[in-house]
């Protein structure tokens, strides 16, 4: 019965299933899945890809067992501020980074295991009015935060013992930065999307703000998910939570836009719209390589091939719980889908 509830819908007569249900984990003490992620965790010389689940008051680490089962290893209890996001830290092990806050992020914390005193612990990385945060390679976190006077864009390097090793500031743009993405193919480049719908480019090594490029008025409040440089152009994958439906593009969830960083001119390359006949809109999602997944306001999860611009799978809501969050696994082609009742389903894409 459980498997029937989470069987992917096949679109437009597709014969093969693009999403294969693997396993389900359910935290009986958790009320609602706030976020889900995967993390490499090493214990007793064995390094495994584990699942991290977050509800408002706690974060749990789940270890894979035989026969597609999961064992809860540990639960970190958090304080009065609710957990609102898990922040993936690429290429790290035994580190979970989380954001806590109410409407906006108020704290960034690290959750870890300390072998020194054989205990699980947590440490504060940053507090303030934090607008956006992203985990970068080499154990770094970039965040934008605002005070009464100005905006601060800061990079913090963290160690696997939970200590902040180094802090560096980047030149802030005038407008608030709402999302960041590293630029694949240019090791020291970072982009961010801003509240006035611009893409900013920084040099991570020098902290310079190199360029601001306007995205256009048709797609307000665009959020960057991925960026890569190819043939002298900067390609940025954007989501459009507030885009209006149009006859030419349907209801766009994701868009790939090519920018010429030298001239700040841009052109749309590919649209990924909601499936035909599907009502509602994009709520939140994640991009990995050429794949995008998002939760829609209908309670479904949709998956797109960004290069083809087409929806490749659609997970309907369960009979008793809607989808709340979707994330790509850090390794392989796994998809983690969280339901409102706190359970998480693992799929292979």
């Amino acid at each position: 019965t459980e498997a029937e509830q989470v069987t992917p819908v096949l679109l437009d007569g597709l014969r093969e299933e693009n999403l294969q249900f693997i396993s389900k984990l359910k935290d009986s003490s958790s009320s609602c899945a706030v976020d889900v992620s995967s993390v490499w965790w090493e214990a007793a010389g064995c390094r495994e890809l584990c699942v991290v689940t977050a509800c408002e008051s706690s974060v749990s680490l789940w270890k894979p067992q035989a026969l597609d089962c999961w064992e809860k290893v540990y639960t970190w209890q958090l304080g009065e501020i609710p957990v609102i996001q898990i922040i993936p830290l690429p290429d790290t092990c035994n580190l979970v980074c989380i954001a806590l806050g109410n409407l906006e992020i108020e704290e960034i914390r690290l959750l870890l295991y300390s072998s020194e005193n054989d205990s699980f612990k947590q440490s504060l990385v940053k507090s303030g009015n934090i607008k956006a945060v992203l985990g970068l390679k080499d154990g770094r976190l970039v965040s934008s935060s605002t005070t009464m006077q100005e905006q601060q864009v800061e990079i913090v390097s963290v160690s696997e013992t939970g200590r902040c090793k180094d802090r560096q500031t980047l030149m802030p743009p005038e407008e608030t930065v709402l999302a960041f993405a590293e630029v694949e193919g240019v090791s020291d480049a970072l982009v961010g999307t801003t509240a006035v719908n611009s893409v900013a480019i920084w040099n991570l090594k020098t902290g310079q703000l190199l360029k601001k490029m306007h995205i256009g008025y048709s797609y307000p409040a665009s959020i960057c998910h991925r960026a890569y440089s190819d043939s002298g152009l900067l390609f940025v994958v954007l989501s459009h939570p507030h885009a209006k439906e149009s006859e030419s593009c349907g209801n766009p969830a994701f868009r790939v836009v090519a920018f010429n960083p030298k001239t700040a001119r841009s052109t749309g390359v590919m649209f990924s719209s909601l499936p035909p006949g599907h009502t509602g809109r994009y709520l939140e999602g994640e991009v990995k390589a050429a794949c995008a997944a998002a939760v829609l306001s209908s309670g479904c999860i949709a998956v797109w091939d960004l290069l083809l611009g087409c929806c490749t799978a659609l997970l309907p809501p369960g009979s008793d719980s809607r989808w709340a969050v979707v994330r790509w696994s850090a390794a392989g082609s796994g998809l983690l889908a969280g339901q409102e009742d706190g359970s998480v389903c693992v799929y292979r894409y």
Partner: peptide
């Protein structure tokens, strides 16, 4: 897209912008 849509393209855009931008 063509060069004429986006203007002249440089493969070294990152290095060029870094040398032009204020420190």
């Amino acid at each position: 897209c063509s060069d004429s849509d986006l203007g002249p393209i440089s493969l070294d855009w990152f290095e060029e912008l870094s040398s032009e931008a204020p420190p």
